Simulated assay, not measured.
Amino acid sequence: MLAKLGPLDPDSITDLRPYLDTVPDPRSPRGRRHPLTCILLVCACATISGAKSIDELAEWGQRAHPTLLAALGARPHPLAWRRSPSAPTIDRVLARIDGDALDAAIGAYLADQHQATAEATESEDTPRRPAIALDGKALKGSARLGQRCRHLLSAITHHRPITLAQTEVGAKTGETRHCRPLLRDLDLAGCVVTFDALHTVKDHLSWLAGTKKAHYIAVIKTNQPLAHQQISGLPWSQATIAHTRSETGHGRVESRSIKVMAIADSLGGIAFPHAKLAIRVHRRRRQRGKKQTRETVYALTSLDAHQATPAELAAYLRGQWAIENSSHHIRDVTFAEDACTVHAGNAPRALAALRNLANGVLHTLRADNIAKTTRAIRDLPERALPFFGISYEPDPSGT
């Protein structure tokens, strides 16, 4: 799998260390052995090598050669078991680390990496405007008696999914009030922001289109019964199908057709800020051995007819739905996020940020199979360093 990625030249990949240097160290100056950046680099390298727990993060460092640890900033020590951060040290650091600062550092790093490789990864199916999906995810393994599982809200790019920003929310119902703070520091001018019906809030739509100069595609469901009734009541039978697409995989056949209709500034007295087009997507899915299912989804967008074709609008909506497979599924299956029972302090969020980092880096380098790539890195610790722009020269003596 590494051969498919081609030679990894650390000089052509952004160095992660300056970004991690911006994260404040939560430890007391007295008794520190390894710099915080070194500990985070060990965790990052171990995660991209497939480590799934605190113990496995520490074990990666124990397997690493002393010269490799020195390249990461570890202090030398005659005792082998003290050359790398121990599991208790990593556990305490991640539990006390500033989650906002760590997410900001990793988000900035991935954004720069994404920008540097965006042109190389574009394809004919990529819409003209960049798109960002807003989506939440629960960390199921972090639940304890009397304590609900942690819930995160993330901003993720559609093409080659990269987590640009992440924050912790109290529960899924708390996602809405964290929407603006999450997106506030991102440059969204000209971008298309997609989200599910939970975030279809008029104040947010007005803020996105007016203040951030972004476009939106807002799904309308029955949680807004009057708006859903107005949009579903438009004369869709008179509109022609503007675009269709069929896909086959995983034992199912799925086809989608889209209709687009220009609207006025209000629908039956319900104003949606900057809305220009109404969208109707009809999906048919046939699973092997099961009956065919059908679903109709309605949405509004601030994009005008000359700013996006029906095919591009369909791609934006498909990109929102695809985040589940391209990000959440990988974190749960390849990196065993839901199975991770770490729950103390900020450690669950910090581990999620490290998984976002590993997933994002591998996607920017166009790894087709994340699981196989992590297994190819796992056996030799030095293979992980070039992925983060760190040069390493093995000790020729082998000692």
Score class of each variant (00 low, 15 high):
Gly233Cys: 15
Val169Cys: 11
Val219Ala: 11
Ala197Asp: 06
His199Asp: 01
Val219Gly: 00
Ala264Lys: 13
Gly190Val: 08
Pro181Gln: 10
Cys191Pro: 00
His199Arg: 14
Val192Ser: 02
Leu208Ile: 04
Thr211Pro: 08
Ser154Gly: 09
Gly251Cys: 10
Asp196Glu: 04
Gly233Ile: 14
Gly249Cys: 07
Ala218Ile: 00
Ala143Ser: 15
Leu153Trp: 00
Ser237Cys: 10
Arg148Asp: 14
Ala197Thr: 05
Glu254Ala: 12
Arg177Ala: 10
His158Asp: 05
Lys221Leu: 07
Thr200Cys: 10
Leu188Ile: 06
Ala189Pro: 09
Arg252Thr: 10
Gly190Leu: 04
Thr176Trp: 00
Gly268Tyr: 10
Asp265Trp: 03
Val193Ala: 02
Thr244Tyr: 06
Ser257Leu: 04
Cys191Thr: 12
Gly190Pro: 09
Lys221Ala: 09
Lys172Met: 12
Ser246Leu: 15
Ala209Phe: 03
Leu145Ile: 11
Cys191Met: 13
Trp236Met: 09
Arg177Cys: 08
Trp236Tyr: 13
Ala264Asn: 11
Thr200His: 03
Glu168Tyr: 04
Val169Thr: 12
Lys213Asn: 11
Ile241Glu: 11
His250Lys: 12
Leu267Asp: 01
Ser154Ile: 03
Pro225Gln: 10
Gly233Asn: 11
Val193Leu: 05
Gln238Pro: 01
Phe195Lys: 00
Gly233Leu: 13
Asp196Tyr: 04
Ala262Gly: 07
Ala165Phe: 13
Arg252Pro: 03
Lys213Thr: 10
Ile231Met: 03
Leu182Ser: 08
Leu152Pro: 02
Ile258Tyr: 05
Ala242Val: 11
Lys172His: 13
Gly190Trp: 01
